[in-house]
Design a protein around this nucleic acid. Structure first.
Length: 282
DNA sequence: TACCAGGGCCTTT
DNA sequence: AAAGGCCATGGT
């Protein structure tokens, strides 16, 4: 499918209208991608420095070998899902049609589960730019250097041995305690991360809720963004506002059509399109 | 200055 | 079961 160019360069066969880097990396689902030059985005995933940019109507990915792309890159960018069909389905709903048309190039990333869990613990009662800043300090302090001032996301074993004082430079506030509890559970095996991909959803949710600082919303985000559980539908403040403004009778049941992906379209639309007035808060 | 942020914990009713 | 204060930090 994909065209292999030089070493570590891959031309994605995905239609660019189904993967807009600015939207996909900027919609609040991930926190480690930056636009380093116009149209060219750089990020770190699973310890690899990647770039993605549009080029002559296609998308060029650098930083992964052919083998790495097949092993996890394809999954990371969710390339095996038919977004054309999914969006056609979403457009049957008049509100979601607006959301899809607002940002048709939004694509749900399948991030590393551990990283997603940590970043959404950090996200609670916080703002997106500050979340990204804390995550960067976490990586710079405890990740492995990857060159160019970039660092990997530190694994649970690394964080499990740290103290609250060690985390002080992150300025993550009361969330530091939550990160340590999460890391110690993951490192000891009392929280078995890989099982969260395949366990019945209720069981996966129950296991995550044992972690301090992980409530229903953070667990849903971790499952959706990090463990491929597209049936999850996190209800944050923006979704609550959207629900009250656009769906006073209740949200539609997107059932087997990836509710989590519908959620991300709706979240981005509600947060960025300026369609919510301040009068419908809370 | 107060209020608020991709919430969750703890205590009080 | 439900409601409300509090939590650390930083932007407005």
């Amino acid at each position: 499918m994909e065209t292999l160019l030089n070493k570590n360069e891959i031309l994605l066969s995905c239609p660019p209208e189904d993967l807009d880097p600015a939207v996909t990396f900027g919609c609040g689902q991930c926190f480690r991608w930056r636009e380093i030059s116009p149209g060219c985005w750089q990020g770190v995933a699973r310890g690899k420095v990647l770039t993605l940019e549009g080029r002559s109507g296609e998308l060029l990915l650098t930083g992964l070998s052919h083998q790495e792309f097949d092993a996890w890159g394809r999954t990371y960018f969710d390339l095996d899902r038919d977004y054309g069909a999914l969006k056609a389905r979403y457009r049957r709903d008049p509100v979601l049609r607006q959301a899809v048309d607002y940002a048709p190039g939004l694509r749900l990333l399948h991030q590393d589960g551990w990283e997603a869990l940590c970043t959404f613990i950090i996200s609670q009662n916080n703002r997106i730019p500050r979340i990204a800043a804390i995550v960067e300090r976490l990586c710079a302090c405890f990740g492995d250097p990857l060159g160019g001032g970039l660092y990997s996301f530190p694994g649970p074993e690394r964080l499990a041995g740290l103290s609250l004082e060690d985390l002080a430079p992150l300025r993550s506030g009361y969330r530091g305690e939550y990160l340590l509890d999460c890391a110690r559970r993951a490192a000891s095996g009392s929280l078995e991360l890989p099982s969260l991909e395949t366990l019945p959803l209720a069981e996966a949710m129950a296991r995550l809720l044992k972690v301090r600082g992980v409530g229903v919303k953070v667990a849903q985000c971790a499952l959706l963004f990090g463990f491929g559980r597209v049936e999850c539908f996190p209800e944050d403040t923006w979704i609550k506002q959207a629900r009250q403004a656009f769906y006073p009778q209740g949200l539609p049941d997107w059932g087997d059509c990836c509710p989590g992906i519908a959620q991300q379209f709706l979240f981005h639309y509600a947060r960025c399109a300026g369609v919510l007035t301040e009068t419908v808060k809370k």
